[in-house]
Design a protein around this nucleic acid. Sequence first.
RNA 1: GGUCCCAUAGACUAAUGGUUAGGUCACCAGCCUUUCACGCUGGCAGUAGGGGUUCAAAUCCCCUUGGGAUCACCA
Length: 483
Amino acid sequence: MNVRVRFAPSPTGYLHVGGLRTALYNYLFAKNQGGKCILRIEDTDRTRLVENAQANLIKSLRWAGIEFDESPEIGGDYGPYIQSERFDLYKKYGMQLIENGTAYIALDTSEELDAMRERQQKAGIAPKYDRTVMRNEFTLGKEETQRLIDNGATYCIRLKVPANEEIRFNDLIRGPVVVTGRDVDDQILLKSDGFPTYHLANVVDDHLMAITHVIRGEEWLPSTPKHVLLYQAFGWECPLFAHLPLLLNKDKSKLSKRQGSVAVEDFAAQGYFKEAFVNFIALLGWNPTADREIFTFQELCDTFNLEKVNKSGAVFDTQKLDWMNGQYLRSLPLDYLVELLKPELANYDYAEVCDKYLGEVINLLKERITFLKDVLTFGNYMFEKPKEYEPTYIAKVWKDNTTTIITPLIDALRSADDFLHDTTHDITMKYVDANGLKLKDVIHPLRLMITGKSVGAGMFETMAVLGKDECIERLDYFIKTKS
RNA sequence: GGUCCCAUAGACUAAUGGUUAGGUCACCAGCCUUUCACGCUGGCAGUAGGGGUUCAAAUCCCCUUGGGAUCACCA
């Protein structure tokens, strides 16, 4: 089969984490099958237009490494790829259904519909459009309906759902699903503003764009019978459906903005590597193997399959993501990290540093931080002299006799030929041994004087990166002013 | 409430009728040590409950319970 899948977001202004996973699975499936992945913008709701939404969407998708084979940007043989630019099409197909009797015209106002639902709620029955009592071509008659329209009445087109028919489809992830027509609402297909609803536009476009697999979130499962009915009404072959398990908040409800960040760009801004983020997201609801967590993008493409997608929802918990980010921080190539970190430097008024130095600092600190940019905060002392010294650390390591103990060591370091790890280490050990001291008696004071902080990388490694001049300067300054 | 979907530890998951139910995060302990980490070793912790089918059930069936989605001229 010539696989064609699509990611069809509505332009809400940002890419939702759940959207990214849907896009990712579509993309991975297409790549794995040697098929095409299409981006289609579903902007039929004219009341919810957001500026730059499409650009933001594509930017986040691109950040994640998802590039489409056909899209509004690059075009393709099945365009346009924006539904508002396909406006005329939907009306034509809607009318086709009127003609073949699978859809009908309705004239109800929203007030009338609200009243109907209220009545039904009161009566304790499920709200559903009642074709037999509302204002439509069945109750009014075709002629009267036409007359009203000619006089300027607004109308919409609804799907005529057969009440006693069983609607079946086979979900690739969930297996066979059956519902009876009685439980399916007469869905509006064309709104009174002439725009199609999602359901019509989606089915028409998926057919016209030769989509073979509809891979989307589970929230679409309840409306899939309507789509199946639509394919039947048109006499078109149904694509295969795969409904992905939901991404969940900690309280197991559908992942939403109300309970924290859900925009992909926010996670990018927080400093997550795209490699880690995509890896993590991919493994929420799908797992290729029992004993591995870290996968390259290529490996995800190579191993992805729909059969191993889970049925149950997955809580989006960033704890493991943080760990994964650390794993990537430790394994990504240094020059790549340097390039990523360089722009961040502009946010600090540190003296200018060269790539080589930045790389050395990253190497020095990457094992004790989660985000690359922590290098600049956790390791601020690598870029500027300490502005303050942790009071509790001073109290702990700086005793009455510390100045006496440490001064000769500083002098010994001052006369060192270089500040390589082994050099300073040997000097310090020699001094410690000769004076019956322990290493920790001097290493903590050194750390305090040079970094101002109680935590950091190995002290000799740190000094090697900072260099002799800088270290001696800091040591002298501390002795002169603080001791 | 109707309809539909789902159910392995706190979280992500593996085990598609036969394993002492495996791995990862988190948590705890130990080792390493120069603080904090990394790393290594070990530990805590799970098949929602009840019935069936079977020599054998996390796995298949039924019921219960629990959770979720959805019921717009939104997508």
